[in-house]
């Protein structure tokens, strides 16, 4: 499903974000990518949804060759990947409903379908009654749930979550991770980028650890290995 083959990413003049990274993630897996700041884990996440391109090597997402993807194909790829960020990236002047609907609007979905799907997805993330609220009227955890609902609303095959619990307290963070595991249970591949030891250790899922832009460990039911 997701294949990184000897992927290198350099930023001029001489910064190596990734150096020969290779791994394969199968459909339906839940994989945590961990590492210290600057280890290259966010670069991996950005490459999965084609925000960054590799300097060398190959990345395949399903049938897509990200390394040679055409500019016009990027939106089509992104409609098959849901992305969740640490800072939620919600539009402050839109309600929770509108934020989620926005993802379908840009994809050209009909208004009728948007009215059907969005309340359903908001219910899945536990915000069935709060669709009319603006982000400022929601807690951090609720805002992240809106962000997850937006990522889910396309019915993507992959969810990439880059430090989704970074701005949340421990209890809320656990709830969000539980939400991801439930999403994974429905068959969606989840790639969780995090440096939170408790979360990684509590998941008992596959863990890829990056150190200085290289894969230092790749373990099924792994643990957080960094000190």
């Amino acid at each position: 499903m997701i294949t990184f083959k000897n992927v290198t990413k350099e930023y001029p003049p001489k910064t190596h974000a990734l150096a020969g990274v290779s791994f394969r993630i199968e459909a339906g897996e839940f994989v945590s990518i961990t590492g210290q700041s600057g280890s290259g884990k966010s670069t991996v996440a950005k490459m999965i949804f084609a925000e960054e391109m590799p300097t060398s090597g190959h990345i395949h997402i399903g049938d897509w060759d990200i390394s040679n993807i055409r500019h016009s194909d990027i939106p089509v790829l992104r409609r098959q990947i849901g992305v969740v960020f640490q800072d939620f990236k919600l539009l402050p002047k839109k309600t929770a409903f509108e934020n989620v609907a926005f993802a379908l609007e840009v994809a050209g979905e009909s208004t009728k379908r948007i009215r059907e799907v969005v309340p359903h997805v908001l219910k899945i993330v536990g915000l069935g009654e709060k669709g009319g609220r603006y982000p400022r009227q929601l807690s951090g955890g609720e805002q992240q749930r809106v962000s997850i609902a937006r990522a889910l609303v396309h019915r993507p095959k992959i969810i990439v979550a880059d430090e989704p619990t970074g701005n949340l307290d421990a209890i809320t963070a656990r709830e969000i991770i539980e939400l991801f595991t439930r999403i994974n249970d429905f068959g969606t591949t989840v790639v969780l980028v995090t440096h939170d030891r408790d979360i990684v250790n509590g998941l008992h899922r596959r863990v890829i650890t990056l150190r200085d832009g290289k894969v230092s460990s790749d373990a099924e039911k792994g643990k957080y290995l960094l000190s």
């Binding site: 949804f49 925000e51 500019h71 016009s72 939106p75 089509v76 790829l77 992104r78 409609r79 992305v83 990236k89 539009l91 926005f102 993802a103 840009v106 994809a107 937006r150 396309h154």
Partner: peptide
């Protein structure tokens, strides 16, 4: 800029 960034993330094409 935020809205544009989010549009791009959720798969809006250039013309959108």
């Amino acid at each position: 800029r935020d809205e544009i960034g989010i549009m791009k993330l959720v798969g809006a094409n250039d013309w959108f």
